[in-house]
């Protein structure tokens, strides 16, 4: 690692101030950033650790909306249980030691194309809350590792409207244990949302054809005959684009069948 300083602000305001330095970078749980720093692939002058910001931690529920502080660990989301599909998803991110440190804000800010949380946020129609504004998930995820966040902007919370039914199915990439393909399905009064991670060069995205079919008939059978184009899907040593396309359909069906 290159040398850098670490600051540990106690409030969002302090964190924002610390991040105003253009060579400063936010540090969440560090489960992605620290390995990156070890490879000397990043050279911030200052890391602003968000783990000490108490106001960014915790989970609360009101009016059918679950609000999760950006600094809340996967472990805490897994233990919460008030949005079952989300807690189950969190319980399967990485491994227990990663879940002790990794945070929802860090994951969503990073927007790894194979990460789980982006699928939950997009699939649930969540709202990303920052120190400056609120961003609908549909507007937030721009592409692989790209988001609507500005420099120095911090995710302070994510608001999840709790759907009638939901489920996440992950087919793991067997080495990294990220999603080779992951599908989050949520059924709400307004219809069904299907978000796919791991599959696309564009990052997390919605499968609208499946949403339409499922909005009419929320059953795995409603997806019969629906296929996903392999165009622009990820192909790597763990699976071809065609295989990923196939898995999207399989995982979607399984998520619908398991939704509760």
């Amino acid at each position: 690692m290159y040398a850098f300083d670490i600051e540990r602000p106690a409030t969002v305001a302090e964190a924002v101030a610390a991040l105003s330095n253009e060579d400063a970078q936010a540090l969440g749980g560090g489960q992605t950033l620290i390995p990156t720093l070890k490879q000397r692939l990043a050279s911030p002058e200052k890391l602003v650790s968000l783990t000490g910001v108490a106001e960014m931690k915790g989970i609360s529920s009101a009016g059918g909306v679950l609000t999760i502080g950006g600094g809340t660990t996967h472990d805490d989301v897994a233990a919460d249980g008030s949005y079952k599909a989300l807690s189950e998803l969190a319980a399967n991110i990485g491994d227990p030691a990663v879940r002790s440190r990794g945070t929802i804000g860090g994951s969503i800010a990073n927007n790894d194309p194979s990460a789980c949380y982006p699928a939950a946020a997009l699939g649930s129609g969540a709202t990303i809350v920052t120190n400056e504004r609120e961003i609908a998930a549909d507007d937030y995820f721009v592409g692989m590792f790209e988001t609507a966040l500005d420099e120095g902007e911090i995710i302070t919370a994510v608001k999840f409207p709790i759907p009638e039914k939901a489920n996440y199915q992950k087919f793991v990439q067997p080495a990294s244990r990220f999603a080779l393909v992951g599908v989050f399905v949520a059924k709400t009064a307004d219809g069904v949302r299907v978000a796919v991670t791991g599959a696309s060069n564009e990052g997390v995205h919605r499968w609208t054809a499946a949403e339409e079919a499922l909005s009419k008939d929320f059953s795995a059978g409603a997806l019969d005959g629906l296929t996903v184009s392999a165009d622009d899907l990820i192909a790597d040593l763990h699976g071809s684009a065609e295989y990923r396309a196939h898995l999207v359909a399989v995982m979607t069906k399984r998520a619908v069948a398991a939704a509760s």
Binding site: P174, A175, S176, D236, L237, H238
Partner: peptide, 11 residues
């Protein structure tokens, strides 16, 4: 080497 870490070499 594409499988040069535990992110891609399946232990």
């Amino acid at each position: 080497l594409l499988s040069a870490s535990y992110m891609d070499y399946v232990m």
